[in-house]
Design a protein around this nucleic acid. Structure first.
Lengths: 359, 359
DNA sequence: ATGATTTACACAACCGGTTGCATATACTTC
DNA sequence: GAAGTATATGCAACCGGTTGTGTAAATCAT
């Protein structure tokens, strides 16, 4: 006699998936026994366990995630929303893939699913967080590209939804009491300082910083690091060399054109990201500069393509794969109620000197 | 008197989310009435509906996805797994972000979640599909980077799990009966032919094709398109100019070095992807070539960075955002049992001529 | 005023798992 | 051999929604 079948109408097809009840019936045991057997509960006899497990495999039994989640009240899913998927404002940034690579890999290792969505902006920004966390779509969220008074952080903190951060301010970082949320950060301010110092060490006096809007912490921080370096070296900070802009290649391109048309143009450009640096390089070249020879351009992030550009791009490499892994580890720990002693991890970017800043 | 609270132990915190039962109790109605009211069921009185909806909003009620999915037997989730997240073999490809941008955007529009994972390779390749579809984590799968006799396609077809394809062979495409799975494709073979013809029209006789392994359809197809162009123009197809390789920048770099060391080196290089073209450009430049002046390099895909390279890279732009959107539309239609009459969409790549192939 | 409809809601089963508790059998122990 | 303790499994409630069906009150027709 056939067990109760789970029939799901999907499309025109009738998809039948084996349920626990069917496995149990095939084995001639109760549902609960089957459930326990499949989780190697010692209360179940060894031979019964093996029999049930064999049968489950034969029947291609796969537990229904929704059913399991319903009483576990956990989904074993984590979510991330990114602005970089939002073409209208940012444009696809390769940096995101590298982050996702680390995240998906580590999540899979822990048997977690990863939910990906675009980050909405404006009025409905919080909707995705409400829906996904409030509705038990995921257990926790990875928040990136934080900004001052970030409403997302306020919301998740207030609701006590598990979350981890990437992209806080270096200053805020140090005040762990005010901001107890776990985070993984790359010391982006120090990185920007080191990068700028590298340019200074090459003899550059007029160094432009491009790409900093005032929205995100990392924009502010990198600009701050740039200014740190200037003041340490007693170089004047010319506001005309530190103009804000958007975050796409095109923005880097246009801003650099503008800079080079100035009366007293810069001899070096520090772009806030490799993506912007690519645009800057093009503009510089079109303006007749020889990059790496009297004119320097460097970026930040360390995207894979950077090493193959012409000339290869000096940059500050973020250990982005590690960041992804650590974010996931941290988030899962928080979800499981086992937050590690050290909830705040500050990694260092690495200065990678290539030909775009030689001479 | 307080309603039954749903308390979830997450981390050290006690997170309480409002349940339907609580909303119902607050409104003094039955659970079923509340459920119907929230879905605007006409069976419920207008004023009752409004009262319940107001209350639900006040209580920040968000329906529990697992509970809902459990009896709907649908998850409103779609999944995609990509090899491009697998750093060991591919390295982060910006192309993926652009695809994901289209996918996440369109999915959100239809209120679908997107599940992202790495594509395993080898023996356990199918595990992710079994788990995610068999276990009701998602309703359907977007399959990319298909290869001949793809076991994933066989599996999903046999199980009748909803799926859509991107990256089939141009030849297979035409035989819709053998392969009824819906797909969205870019005519990559025609694109490669057009690209090669572009190089031929510039006077190049020795055109190398780099990057084609023999694994994926798109590798085979692009090589086939290249060969199509040669034979149409009665140019000899020198096997020494069509060497296989991997798919990273580094592979493009090394293979180009190798090609340029040959006795009779090519004067133009057609790279299978923009990512490879970037590596090829570097190698060519290091070998003393002036790209765009006597030596041409072009790529395929149309990643955003291409326009800003030095020189700007000629390429075949895939309408990747559209591909993502259409894949999602198609997949959702299949899931809902409303497959459109036209389940097979063939888009054309667009030749974008830039300075890397001038002269 | 009475029977037939309609309207608006309640009741309870169900989706597919998990889990506390009860129970039956086997095994000790004296 | 009776009482006590493990051991192995069954029973039923539960997670939080959805949905088929039953029913009381309200509206209508006669």
């Amino acid at each position: 006699m056939a067990g109760k079948m789970s029939r799901v109408q999907i499309g025109e097809q009738l998809i039948a998936r084996t349920t626990l009840a069917e496995v149990a019936q095939a084995a001639g045991v109760n549902k609960s026994t089957a459930s326990r057997a499949l989780r190697n509960d010692p209360a179940i006899g060894v031979e019964t366990q093996q029999r049930i497990q064999r049968l489950a495999a034969q029947l291609n039994y796969v537990p229904n995630a929704s059913a399991r989640r319903l009483n576990n009240a956990q989904t074993d899913t984590l979510a991330i929303a990114s602005r970089a998927l939002n073409q209208s404002t940012v444009g696809a940034d390769p940096f995101l893939v590298e982050l996702l690579a680390g995240i998906t890999d580590e999540a899979a290792r822990h048997h977690f699913d990863v939910l990906l969505s675009r980050a909405e902006e404006g009025e409905h920004e919080l909707n995705v967080y409400k829906r996904i966390l409030g509705g038990h779509h995921a257990d926790g969220f990875i928040l990136t590209d934080l900004r001052p008074n970030d409403p997302r952080l306020d919301y998740l903190s207030a609701k006590r939804y598990p979350h981890v951060l990437f992209g806080r301010s270096a200053e805020d970082l140090r005040d762990a009491r005010r901001y107890p949320s776990p985070w993984v950060e790359v010391d982006t301010r120090a990185g920007a300082r080191i990068g700028t110092e590298h340019l200074i060490s090459l003899g550059h006096k007029r160094i432009a910083f491009i790409g900093g809007g005032d929205t995100f912490f990392y924009e502010r921080d990198r600009r701050a690091g740039y200014l740190d370096a200037l003041s340490r070296s007693n170089l004047p900070a010319d506001p005309a060399l530190c103009l804000p802009s958007g975050l796409s290649q095109e923005d880097g391109y246009q801003l650099t054109q503008q800079l080079l048309r100035q009366a007293n143009p810069p001899t070096a450009i520090f772009a806030i990201s490799d993506v912007l640096a690519v645009g800057a390089m093009r503009a510089a070249r079109e303006a007749g500069k020889t990059i790496g020879l009297g004119f320097a351009v460097m970026g930040f992030d360390g995207i894979g393509l950077g090493a193959y550009l012409t000339p290869p791009l000096t940059t500050l490499r973020q250990p982005i794969n590690d960041v992804g892994r650590l974010l996931v580890q941290l988030l899962i720990a928080v979800i499981r109620g086992q937050p590690p002693a050290e909830k705040h991890l500050l990694l260092q970017p690495e200065l990678v000197v290539r030909a775009s800043t030689r001479g």
